[in-house]
Simulated scan of single mutants.
Amino acid sequence: MNEDQEIIELLKNQEDHPVAFRKIVSTYKERLYFLIRKIVIDHDDTDDVLQEAFVKIWKNLEKFRGDSNLYTWLYRIATNEALSFLRRRKKSRNISFDENPELLQMLEKGGGKAQHISGDDISVALQKAVLQLPEKQRVVFNLKYFEHLTYDEISEITETSVGGLKANYHAARKKIEEIIKLD
């Protein structure tokens, strides 16, 4: 029995939910962190969003019915929390994160809060290009390119049609290619 199957079995009995939750955290904390980090960028913000995602997961354990894979359900919650965070931040700051020069400067300097990015020029150029994508394209690109999810899995997470996802991914790749050619 793999880890997910064990967690799903534990979720069937409400008394086992604390054990299931601890297993979810230990198994998925790092993967969800990096998923959220690619969306919100900043480490401190990522920690906050990850904590909110785990709170939401805990509160909704009884709602997991097993209709989708466990990681798909977790990714959907984490992605939705990250997107909600970006919308709240955008409203409160009234800024566009599609054109946030501070994030690009942070990458160009290669230090500070962007230390998870290697100094490799190609990696930095790709990260800079991804930051310039519109929110939806950035999420789809990150899930497909970095997380290696299928379009069906991304569709479950984002609740978007596969056709729409393919269009967003294709548009994101084209924009990234154009941006990297300009640098």
Rank of each mutant, 00 (worst) to 15 (best):
K59R: 12
K23D: 08
T27K: 12
Y151G: 14
R65K: 13
H170P: 10
T72S: 13
P18M: 04
E62F: 13
R138E: 06
T160D: 13
L143Q: 05
F141H: 08
L165R: 06
L133F: 06
N94V: 14
L165Y: 07
K166F: 13
S118H: 15
A114L: 00
P134Q: 07
E156G: 14
R173G: 15
K29Y: 10
R88F: 08
T150M: 11
R65V: 04
S26F: 01
L103K: 03
E52Y: 04
Y33T: 13
K109Q: 11
L131N: 02
M1P: 14
R87L: 04
F21Q: 03
H170E: 15
D42M: 14
H43S: 11
R93D: 02
E177Q: 12
E108W: 03
A167P: 09
G111I: 06
R22G: 10
E156C: 09
E6R: 12
F141G: 07
E159Q: 15
E99M: 15
E30F: 02
I39Q: 01
V139Y: 02
S26H: 05
G119Q: 12
I39V: 11
D183P: 07
W58F: 14
R31E: 15
F146Y: 14
E102F: 02
M106D: 02
V19R: 15
S123N: 11
D67Q: 08
H116K: 07
L149M: 11
K29A: 09
K91I: 10
A125C: 00
R76N: 01
E6H: 07
K128P: 02
I176F: 09
L83G: 01
A20Y: 10
Q14N: 08
D98I: 07
G119Y: 10
E153Q: 08
A53E: 07
V55W: 06
V25H: 00
F85I: 10
E52I: 02
K56W: 07
G111K: 08
N13F: 10
K56Y: 12
K174F: 06
P134K: 09
H43V: 13
E81V: 05
G66Y: 12
F34G: 09
I95D: 00
A171H: 13
Y169F: 11
A78Y: 05
D67P: 09
N60W: 05
I180R: 13
V124D: 04
K23H: 05
I157D: 00
R93Y: 03
D183H: 14
A78F: 04
K63S: 07
